[in-house]
Each structure stands twice: as C-alpha cells, then as structure tokens.
Amino acid sequence: MSVDIDTVKRVARLARIAVDEDDANRMTGELNAILGFVEQLNEVDVTGIEPMTSVIPMTMKMRQDEVTDGSKAEDIVANAPETGEHFFLVPKVVE
C-alpha cells in the first residue's frame, strides 16, 4: 500500500500537525519508503496467532479504590502556557 499527497494531508490533519505543500510532498516520499519496508510482514502466516497484548504475562494489579493523591492544583497548572485561577486557558471554542 502507498499513500498520495491528499492522504498525507488528511493524516496530518488527524494528527493535528500543520503541514505546507513542501512538507506534505516530502512526507509522502518518506512515508511510502517506510510503508514499503513494513510490507514484508505480509509474507508471514499469522493464521490462528493471537496478537500480543502484554510482553510479560501478568494479571492486572488492583488496589483499594481510595484517594491517595490530590490537592495539587498549583502543581498541575505550573507548567501551562496560559492559566487563570487554576484553569487552563484555551482559545474560545463555543461562540
């Protein structure tokens, strides 16, 4: 399978990365090189093989459902580019 420039632009949109015409052109070539490389996986017979979900067999750890952390609003917003009263500020999303 290979991708064309329109697919690259669509994927960039899904990934929320702005691309111009030059970027999209370059990426089309690069992505096709990588997709060409992974193509060889089609040679492998995977009939009846379970997909891997965990490299080390283990059961999910459980813990008591109780509060172990919190009251850190100051810490949580400390690295944000724009904040106000412990809220993250973003451009207007609802008119």
Binding site: R13, A15, R16, I17, A18, V19, N79, A80, P81, E82, F88, V90, P91, K92, V93
Partner: peptide, 22 residues
C-alpha cells in the same frame, strides 16, 4: 499547547494545536 510546554497561537483551538505541534 494547553497543559505544558510550547504554545503557538492560531485562529481557533484546532489551528493552535496544529501550529504548536508543527
């Protein structure tokens, strides 16, 4: 561009995401 690190402004929130990540 919301919770930490770089933010590059845009016309709306989607463009802000796209510009920041670009």
């Amino acid at each position: 561009g919301v919770r930490y690190g770089l933010r590059v402004p845009g016309r709306d929130i989607t463009e802000m995401y796209e510009n920041t990540r670009a």
